[in-house]
Computed example of a mutant assay.
Amino acid sequence: MYSFRFLPLSIFTKAAVLFALAATGSQGQTLLSHYTMDNSLEDSGTLEIDGELINSASFQAGGAGTFDYALSTADGTQDFFRADTSNNAAFALNAITISMWVNVSAFGDSDRLISNIGGSASGFEMNLKTGALTDGDYRISFGFNSTSGAVQSSDNIGYQLDEWVFLAVTYDSSIGTGDNVFFYLGSETNSVVMNDSDEKSGAIVASSSDLEIGGTPATSSDRTPTALFNDVRIYNGVLDTAALESIRASAIPEPAHTGVFVGALFMGLVLIRRRC
């Protein structure tokens, strides 16, 4: 005869919640490009387009959360990471999610976090913007198919200089009327929140230019911030807050980092003990 004993729920409550959110929040979106920047040029996304360091861009010890290294664009101008994604049909998108960890020390207005906008009306990008901020040091803008017409995050909830910030932008062209661009913010100690939204229209045209992190192919002028980057991701659809929180939490040291995996492994398992 067998009896059943469940693991104590209290041990894994937080982990179980995070795991459940991760399982339901991504909605089956494909991770196209994924650059951890943890002393690696590798793309672990489905496109598998590895990159290269341009000019004085380098890997520096001391990444976000559990990352040992980070991409550094701090040693000069026009220092960035580049991947040869030009004319890739996978980047012709009706919806997109871009997320990353970034630690910005200094920047100029319109310095790029990520961009593949070139000379043609195609591609997407995220910029750093100044403004009359009431809380924080910079804003984020998101645009596509042009270097003009981007939408910007709020003046009221800004992003902080000189600390690791988890940020994300999602866009869904299928939303007919109303806001369809959403800006998200998290940190090494704070969960992800949606801090602003705006409206754009149209599909993202596949760019004829390469993808740059910390730069842009749109101009020969310097658009590189003094910053560190980790865990840059591009999805071909919209992730919700729960899925973004799962990504953020996966980079955080104990207990949140391990809790996700331990909770995923053990929560719901039944210990079977045979009685004589």
Rank of each mutant, 00 (worst) to 15 (best):
L21N: 15
E212N: 05
D84E: 11
S191F: 11
A23E: 15
N103Q: 10
E254Q: 07
S33I: 14
R275W: 15
V165A: 08
D111S: 07
S187I: 00
Q152F: 11
A242N: 13
F182R: 09
L21I: 08
G237R: 05
V205S: 12
I140S: 02
T226H: 12
M37R: 05
A132I: 01
M194W: 00
I247G: 01
P225L: 07
A70F: 02
I114Q: 03
D196G: 15
A74S: 12
D111T: 01
V151Y: 09
G119P: 06
G76I: 02
S146T: 07
Q29D: 07
A243N: 09
A242G: 15
M194E: 15
D38F: 02
G65Q: 02
L228C: 04
D84A: 08
A132N: 09
L47W: 15
I204A: 03
L53Q: 08
S154L: 03
L269Q: 14
A64W: 08
G136W: 01
L265I: 09
G202E: 06
N156P: 00
R139K: 13
L31C: 10
T130N: 12
E52L: 04
V260F: 14
L41T: 13
I96K: 08
S197L: 00
S187K: 00
N190H: 04
S141E: 12
S187G: 15
R275V: 13
N180P: 13
D155W: 02
R5C: 03
M267N: 13
Y2L: 01
Y35P: 10
D162V: 01
T147A: 07
E199A: 12
N230F: 10
Q152L: 04
V193E: 15
L31K: 13
F107D: 06
L269E: 15
K129S: 06
G178V: 04
R139I: 02
D43R: 07
T36C: 01
S141K: 01
F67T: 06
S44D: 13
S221A: 15
R248A: 02
Q29R: 12
N116F: 10
P225W: 08
Y235W: 11
M100A: 09
N88E: 03
A61S: 10
I117K: 09
V192K: 03
K129Q: 10
E245C: 04
S26P: 11
A227N: 04
L18A: 14
F142K: 05
N156F: 10
N127S: 08
L93M: 10
L31S: 12
V192A: 12
M1L: 03
V262T: 11
A64I: 00
E212H: 07
L239Q: 11
R139S: 11
